[in-house]
Design a protein around this nucleic acid. Structure first.
Lengths: 341, 341
DNA sequence: ACAAAATTTTTACGCGCGTAAAGAAATATG
DNA sequence: CATATTTCTTTACGCGCGTAAAAATTTTGT
């Protein structure tokens, strides 16, 4: 029950019996006051439902409790999922996360960073657009604001990088495919949005050679972030021209694989491991949707939890002043066996 | 080129040759100053790259330029897409949108609204969780903050409702299915998260009766927002028990349909309109993913653009003081014919 | 119980900007 | 050109809170 409407910290301090500077200190860090006063304040907060004005709070503080979370494309469930994960971790750690998406547009990415600047964030968790990102703007931002880069690494910007181990991803699933059937061809975009794609291709080539197989890479045309459509169109063309030298196709990512599956369906080609199936298709990412494709997609999944945990912890440590040299943490993926391969 | 670092509006006013109150007025509304002074200010803004401190700006203003966009589940590409659309419209209209997701949790929804309150938003675009939303908290919020409800209507809360015309959706696609084959069964969740589901079931029943067919509703168990999995499990059960009385299934929404398609695949049932197909499946929503299912999903699509346009315009009008009685706008969907039905 | 250490209170100023009021200057009207 | 109108400048105060410094109080250690 709120007894009386508290308008500001002055009134709150009067009614709670604690001086305003101490109340201010409490809201900045509840652990910085004596337990007995903390209890009094919290009782009063409960009773009067008071919250300090965030604008006034942030005005004079050099460092706010704001944390920006920036992803390249929020309509991609993969990014939505990892953003959700990160958001929760920020809240749990006492920060105020704000979500941003560059919507696949490098100009918007720069705008987002500009907006973020004006929020004086304590730190930022940034998944850059990748290839299309404006390097100079990104670098300047990382210099000014403690920024942890995740998902896709851009040079040695920011305080650290946390992402998945793309070499391990592709080696592992390539190995699996070779052991269980014909060695895979590699299906990718010619000009991928994201540098992870290059790592994956390289890992594919290396793995294939180490197994003594001849690699074959099919690179399809297409710009932008409509991966499914690019995979579908590219798949149609590659299938029609019989460009796949084996019956197994490893896609650079799940969204491309989803498009390829659609192309296969549209050409009446049966995908899977069954005796009546013509080809096997595998993806990479553990996309939230991959369970529901037809057939369900065999893939290698990001460890969403581990990535977000490492990323958040590294950022919070940096905010707390634990300076460490730039570091790249790459987390292994887990093979998800389904019917497609 | 920035010549000198401007620290505050005082310095900016001095260097731009315009008094501080006028500069302040300009930043609040660029059209409120004479064109000649506007030019001077904008030249200086360009030259010195000055932006007012948003915290100081918002502290004393009763009404900020902040707009909250709240969706029930950002990992659902449907909501991500409409949120993206709304975000852009806010920016274009000179507002500062901030994106929130309740992540399917009613408690989080209340927390989001609480957080939103502290941002003193000029207005909020809210897609409520639906059935699970806490009515009292929602109503109180709508009383305090100009709120436009979209997607899913909750009584007559807020300044207006804008969403899709669920009756038209279901009538239209039911009509299509009846005209092109056997009349459809209706596949839905027994306890749907969202009141639109009830409208759709009702529209199905009405349409079937008006066509002189016997309706059949299959309601599957399942709580929460994992619609695909609910559709898959429910689909397996219904298929095994041969609960579908005709060869055509209209799903309450696309995500459920996607799960059902997976179940069909897993049972070796061929879906589509071809001669070799056993059943037809249709969805509703025009989910971004529906193009890439196997077979591609016939559905009736939200008019994303029209919904977001109406919603944004109605909110901005209300913010500008155009008071109108509560109104519900329901926008028709467009049939998207694909191979599944 | 007493000194030392930790915490809180008191007092006071400043952050960057919104905004009100009164007068000066520029523009519009006839 | 004189007057009415709009816009701008000057001056001044306040928003709600951060924060610094010195004094007062409470807690801790022995």
């Amino acid at each position: 029950m709120s007894a009386k409407l508290i308008r500001n910290m002055e009134e709150f301090s009067a009614i709670s019996g604690i001086s305003r500077p101490t109340v201010s200190k409490y809201f900045n860090d509840p652990d910085s006051v004596r337990p007995s006063t903390r209890e009094k304040i919290e009782a009063a907060v409960e009773k009067y439902d008071y919250r300090p004005n965030i604008f006034a709070m942030n005005q004079n503080r050099k460092l706010t409790k704001n944390v920006g979370i920036v992803v390249p494309l929020l309509t991609d469930p993969y990014f939505a999922e990892i953003a959700r994960n990160l958001e929760q971790r920020c809240i749990d750690a006492g920060y105020r996360p704000t979500l941003f998406s560059a919507h696949g547009d490098p100009n918007l990415e720069v705008e987002v960073l500009d907006n973020l600047r004006s929020m004086k964030p304590a730190g930022v968790l940034l998944a850059p657009l990748g290839r299309a990102s404006r390097r100079d703007a990104l670098e300047k931002f990382c210099d000014d604001v403690p920024t942890l880069i995740f998902d896709s690494s851009v040079e040695e910007f920011g305080i650290a990088f946390v992402g998945s181990d793309n070499f391990q991803f592709t080696s592992h699933i390539t190995d699996y495919l070779c052991r269980t059937g014909e060695p895979p061809c590699f299906f990718e975009m010619k000009t991928p949005a994201n540098p992870n794609a290059h790592r994956r291709r390289q890992a594919y080539l290396t793995a294939m050679e180490s197994f003594g197989h001849t690699p074959q890479v099919i690179s399809v045309e297409g710009e932008g972030w409509s991966f499914e459509e690019i995979g579908r169109l590219g798949g149609h063309e590659a299938l029609s021209k019989k460009q796949f030298s084996t019956n197994t196709i490893l896609c650079s990512n799940d969204r491309l694989a989803i498009g390829l599956l659609t192309a296969c369906y549209e050409q009446g080609i049966k995908v899977g491991r069954g005796p009546d199936c013509t080809i096997r298709v595998a993806g990479q990412d553990g996309h939230p949707h991959s369970r529901y494709t037809c057939p369900p997609l065999t893939t290698i999944s990001h460890d969403y939890n581990a990535v977000s945990k490492h990323a958040a912890q590294a950022l919070f440590a940096a905010i707390d002043g634990h300076v460490e040299p730039w570091k790249s943490t790459r987390i292994e993926g887990k093979l998800v066996l389904r019917d497609s391969a």
